[in-house]
Amino acid sequence: MISTDDRIEQKIKRLNPGSIVFTEDFQSFGSSGAVAVALHRMVKKGILRTLARGIFVKPKFSKLLNQEVLPSTEQVAKAIAKRDRARILPTGIYAQNILGLSTQVPLKSVFLTDGSPRKITIGNRTIQFKKTTPKNLALKGNISKLVVLALKEIGKDKATDDELNKIKTLLKRENVKDLKHDISLAPQWIAEIMAKTL
């Protein structure tokens, strides 16, 4: 009979480098104790890296950088949301960073979610999930939803001409139907900025 270790190792070998996995992904392979021991062995062998308690990644090596590359905060957050069947939205400075409005990479990334609120530490980075209203998560457009959150962070009448021009350029790439939908949900002052791109 094939051991828990071998079954887990075979499954990991089939994954693409950079894939994020959770302890729960292997619960059908044996008792929780056997799975925990097997995963610990995989980490010791270098087959997996521990990101946080119960969260692992299959190592990915970049020839260009000549070093191992860890997943981004957003990739980890998305993997957790997928596992929890929850929706998430990046907030504030992180939304600005994704849009290219800020070069600041926050060490603490905050996501709004309809899942469980929690805080996860990965190295020197922190991912925080904050419970939010369904209205916030009803935003649809890949770009427009980030614009709403980025502008909320910047504040009313505080966006520079450069930031507003960049936002207009970005929103021109948004699906018009999604953009109109998100304008209807945005605070009045943000809706007015976004409507100028229609």
Rank of each mutant, 00 (worst) to 15 (best):
Lys119Pro: 05
Lys156Pro: 06
Gly123Ile: 06
Glu163Gly: 07
Lys135Met: 04
Asn142Ile: 04
Val148Asn: 03
Glu24Phe: 02
Asn97Gly: 08
Ala138Pro: 00
Arg49Tyr: 07
Gly100Trp: 04
Arg41Phe: 01
Leu149Asn: 15
Arg85Cys: 06
Lys58Thr: 07
Ser102Asn: 14
Phe111Cys: 12
Arg87Pro: 08
Lys13Pro: 02
Glu24Thr: 11
Leu164Glu: 06
Ala77Cys: 04
Met42Ser: 13
Ser72His: 01
Leu51Gln: 03
Ala34Leu: 08
Lys13Ala: 13
Thr113Cys: 09
Arg7Phe: 00
Arg85Ser: 14
Pro106Ser: 09
Glu174Phe: 03
Lys78His: 11
Arg118Cys: 01
Thr113Ile: 06
Gly46Asp: 08
Gln67Trp: 00
Ser28Gly: 08
Thr113Asn: 08
Asp162Ala: 12
Ser116Lys: 15
Ile12Leu: 09
Gly18Trp: 06
His181Ser: 13
Ile183Lys: 06
Leu139Thr: 07
Ser109Ile: 00
Lys158His: 09
Asp178Ile: 02
Asn136Val: 07
Ala34His: 12
Thr73Ala: 15
Pro59Leu: 00
Lys158Ala: 11
Asn66Gly: 07
Gly92Arg: 02
Val176Lys: 15
Gln10Cys: 09
Thr103Lys: 11
Ala191Tyr: 06
Ile12Tyr: 02
Val76Ile: 15
His181Gln: 08
Ser72Phe: 00
Met194Pro: 14
Thr160Arg: 12
Ala36Ile: 07
Leu149Tyr: 09
Val110His: 07
Gln188Asn: 13
Gly18Lys: 04
Lys82Met: 05
Arg49Phe: 06
Lys11Pro: 08
Glu9Ile: 12
Leu15Ser: 15
Lys78Val: 10
Lys78Ile: 10
Thr113Gly: 11
Glu74Lys: 00
Glu174Met: 05
Glu174Asp: 07
Lys60Thr: 02
Val147Gly: 06
Val21Phe: 03
Ala186Ile: 04
Val35Asn: 12
Gly54Arg: 04
Ile12Trp: 02
Gly100Ile: 09
